[in-house]
């Protein structure tokens, strides 16, 4: 769909509401730079974390002199260090995402833009990757409110193309990305190769993973009827069907089972799964559902 016809990814009122949100990671990661969140690493923040015995070479500034006076032993005070957070937004831009009104891709880009904004405002490091059969477009990590334009510019340039290969794309991503952090994967998961292997790559890297499963209304409630030759837009695979009640029912059962299997897979591996349709207003998704799931607060 041409960019001129699509609504802007984010509008100012929505941005204003997003400013109050911040990303929440259930895991504490090491950051490269001091950020606005607690780090696993003990450091120089004001928040006390623990004591440990002094060993030779420790910074004398962190000695707890009061304790030395009482116990006559040297202890080093450990503080929680506040760090920045890596936020990886992985947007599926395969051809299958170019369906629905609005298209699933546009919807995914809107969600990605919103989450990126939340991350940028909270001084997190936000990286965006578009993928189809591999990683197709990458935006280097950006930080700070001022980088929002870069993110939006990048997202606007993401066009549908190629067929899905989640496994290859996520394998490349997990090898390439260095820091740990939050990975938000926006896709329709319509990959004939399956999603299990792909997600295992991410799980192995111990990212805090969120899957946002985007489907169009036409996929959830197909309104097809009669003798049809269905052509897959990605690989031009054909399926000859005579669509009728039982087939539609079976399709829906399969879709539900597929979603359930994906959700189950995620649940077992601590991955947060969120299913959405392109008919759910994306602001509500971000402000309500993601908040409920604890991704933002």
């Amino acid at each position: 769909m041409p960019a001129t016809q699509t609504p802007p990814l984010l509008d100012p009122q929505f941005l204003a509401r997003l400013e109050q949100l911040e990303l929440v990671s259930r895991k504490i990661f090491l950051g490269l730079m001091k950020g606005e969140r607690r780090s696993k690493r003990k450091g120089q923040s004001v928040e006390f974390a623990d004591y440990r015995n002094y060993v030779k070479g420790d910074d004398l500034r962190f000695l707890d002199w009061n304790l030395y006076a009482r116990l006559d032993r040297l202890f080093i005070r450990l503080f929680m260090e506040e760090e920045d957070l890596h936020l990886y937004l992985l947007v599926d831009n395969s051809l299958s995402m170019d369906f629905g009104t609005p298209t699933k891709l546009h919807y995914a880009k809107q969600v990605a833009a919103a989450l990126a904004f939340v991350g940028l405002v909270n001084m997190d490091r936000v990286a965006v990757e578009a993928f189809s059969e591999r990683l197709t477009q990458s935006m280097p990590a950006a930080r700070g409110r001022r980088s929002l334009w870069r993110v939006l510019d990048f997202l606007n340039k993401v066009e549908p193309g190629g067929s899905s290969n989640l496994r290859e794309a996520l394998r490349t991503f997990s090898l390439k990305s260095s820091g740990k952090g939050i990975v938000i994967l926006l896709s329709d998961f319509m990959d004939k190769g399956g999603y299990e292997d792909a997600l295992r790559y991410l799980v192995a890297r111990q990212y805090d993973i969120y899957l946002i499963h985007v489907l169009s209304q036409e996929e959830i409630e197909p309104e097809l009827m009669g003798d049809l030759k269905l052509i897959d837009v990605e690989d031009f695979d054909e399926a000859e069907v005579t669509v009728g009640g039982p087939l539609i029912k079976k399709y829906k059962q399969n879709l539900a089972a597929y979603r359930a299997a994906l959700q189950d897979f995620c649940l077992k591996r601590g991955v947060t799964y969120l299913f959405t349709s392109n008919q759910v207003p994306f602001d509500r998704l971000v402000l309500t559902y993601l908040r409920q799931r604890g991704l933002v607060k």
């Binding site: 299958s96 329709d188 319509m190 990959d191 039982p246 079976k250």
Partner: peptide, 22 residues
């Protein structure tokens, strides 16, 4: 009967699965 109307879909993945199930 074999002359079917072609129609593009995002993926035939679930349809094929449905047919295969049947």
């Amino acid at each position: 009967k074999l002359k079917r109307k072609p129609m593009q879909v995002p993926s035939t993945f679930l349809w094929k699965k449905a047919i295969e199930d049947l």
